[in-house]
Amino acid sequence: MSGYVEIAIGVIQALVIVALAPLITGMMRKTKAKTQKRTGFGIFQPYCDIIKLLHKDEVVSDQSSWIFRFSPWVNFVAIGAAAFFIPVFLSNSPFGLVGDLLLVIGLFGLARFFTMLSGLDVASTFGGLGSGREMMISALLEPALFLSIFLVALTYGGTNLSTLVGAASDSPLLPHPQLIFAAIAMFIIILGETGRLPFDNPATHLELTMVHEAMILEYSGKSLALMEWSQSIKQMILFALIVNIFIPWGISSSISVSELGIGFLAFVAKISMFAIFVAWFETSVAKWRLFRIPDLIAIAIASLMIGIVFYFL
């Protein structure tokens, strides 16, 4: 019986991520607008956008193949599936037995693979440009990400997210000084992975600065909606990961309505705070030149290496 409940909660956690993702995006946009002294749209605007796009017809390039039409679905399915493995308000998810952090990374990789392909598929000048840049950034982010997983997994005894978050919520942060380095690196990585400044400007349509936008430039209608939405979900997942690993306060470890409720509220609060922080941070930096991005990633890697040495010594 409890098995079914657990599975149900697991599914609900995933649905929470999928459903709340646009909201986070909206909050971030709003924050940015505020910090830039603009009014900005409401925080629910992304939902409206998605619904609007879902109703629209699609314009498809005559050069494109089925890859182009297929990849939004792959994107959404892969990233949506990744949401199942993320602890949101309950540390012990039944899906922890199915997959771990590396699987999540793998699913992101799948999504990105198809995004890059679709950038190439339409034979436009921009798509390839975006894909090439994305290739570089993702290739460089990979080792940083892996090292941070390494460090976190060493500290908490596993890549299994349930174990990880569970262990994190049980132990105070202080005995693990290496986690500070991991947190710094993780923050940089998340900026890169979600296409935030200084890596990429999600709001740009200027060819010099486009990365992600360049790849999805040709999309319209439902496909664009799926692409945008899955990007939001990915961002949400990564935020959820960082908050639950590094600030696991309030996450519930047992299935009871009150704890779950607290857990949920705590989660929403934490992630909103984090999103606002990221958005605020974004306004305070400028977009870096493409070939300075490796320097940034190098900082992350260096910090992780120090962390690893800290751990072992």
Binding site: G96, V98, D100
Partner: peptide, 9 residues
Amino acid sequence: AGTSFANLS
């Protein structure tokens, strides 16, 4: 520690 380190199904 005897708990799950990683799983994949």
